[in-house]
């Protein structure tokens, strides 16, 4: 006990050390990513575009009365852009394309965000647990994975959407989520397999730390950059998922505007040639969004890999 009290260093000293440590600490992942964005002008612009756009459509859609907006208005039948106060014109039902675009973007992006959150969380957890435990647990979890992989995904979703009568954006997100965690889980599993073999995991086991803590507090932080990159890229992909199905007519219900239903206007040859404003804005928006997000994803991927960073210094 005597040596204990001798060892005590005064609190002042300890505080100084703590502060010094904060300064010397490896820059956090957030800081690295930010400095990487600052070094890459186009990526910074892409980031600003995406963030501003998401904020704009979310706020603007609050001021739009959706059911009123979706009512047919014969007098505005296929109004041209800028005609009668219709900024981007109107479709065959005389509904404002501009308003549909705003609400539709919110719906599509909302679904993509929800889908990304759910499927990434599930996929990451699945991969971590499967890779860490190995053996029987891994065997069973991989057989389930194989089975899911075998199912024709798009067809299954279409069937489910047809069976479930009263579905909305939330049920649709959940249905998509059942199928979109697979890629993530496989990626995370392979990294976890490699990571679990490292001695710090063995040291944690002999230090008496329980498996859940080892998985989520020791291993997961060490593969966090992979998780961030994968999540960003799947977000870009997921915007396409809902859009594609709505385009085919199996996504959101017809009365709910989405980017996909807007692009579906292009199904009509007349629309393609004469009434371009009914589908072109939505198509352009998707192209720009997906490009911007995958550009952002690349920057994040770069910052996750120290050897590829462009930002000099810390």
């Amino acid at each position: 006990m005597k040596s204990l009290s001798e060892q005590t260093i005064d609190p002042q000293e300890l505080k100084r050390l703590t502060q010094e440590a904060e300064r010397q600490a490896t820059p956090s992942a957030g800081k690295i990513v930010w400095s990487e964005f600052k070094a890459d002008r186009p990526a910074l612009i892409a980031l600003i575009i995406v963030v501003c756009f998401i904020v704009f459509v979310t706020i603007a859609s609050f001021f739009i009365n959706v059911s009123q907006m979706m009512n047919t208005n014969i007098t505005a039948y296929l109004n041209r852009p800028l005609q009668d106060g219709y900024l981007l014109g109107a479709d065959t039902g005389g509904r404002s394309i501009m308003k549909q675009l705003i609400v539709g973007s919110r719906n599509s992006i909302g679904i993509a965000i929800g889908l990304t959150l759910i499927s990434s969380t599930w996929g990451v957890a699945w991969g971590l647990i499967s890779g860490y435990y190995g053996g029987f647990v891994d065997w069973w979890m991989q057989r389930i994975y194989d089975f899911m992989m075998m199912l024709p995904m798009t067809m299954m979703i279409i069937v489910l959407v047809t069976i479930i009568h009263n579905y909305n954006a939330i049920t649709l997100t959940l249905i998509f989520s059942c199928f979109y965690w697979l890629g993530t889980s496989r990626l995370i599993r392979s990294r976890t397999l490699a990571e679990s073999k490292k001695d710090y995991v063995a040291a944690s086991i002999t230090s008496g730390t329980n498996s859940w803590k080892i998985i989520f507090r020791e291993i997961m932080p060490n593969i966090s950059s992979l998780i961030v990159v994968d999540t960003t890229l799947s977000f870009a992909e997921n915007i396409g998922v809902e859009t594609g199905l709505s385009y085919l007519g199996f996504g959101l219900p017809p009365k709910t505007p989405s980017l996909g239903t807007l692009i579906a206007n292009a199904n009509d040859p007349n629309n393609i040639t004469q009434y371009w404003w009914t589908w072109l804005p939505a198509a352009l928006e998707i192209i720009i969004l997906c490009l911007a997000i995958s550009y952002i994803g690349q920057v994040i991927r770069r910052s996750a890999d120290a050897s590829q960073r462009q930002a000099v210094g810390k």
Binding site: D199, S207, T209
Partner: peptide, 27 residues
């Protein structure tokens, strides 16, 4: 146990304090 590869036996994301305190916290 003391491990063969000292670098891989220490979690790169953790401070030395947390690393050494780990067995203390559990036991």
């Amino acid at each position: 146990m003391i491990f063969q590869d000292s670098l891989s036996s220490l979690n790169p994301r953790k401070r030395i304090e947390t690393i050494i305190a780990e067995p203390l916290r559990n036991f």
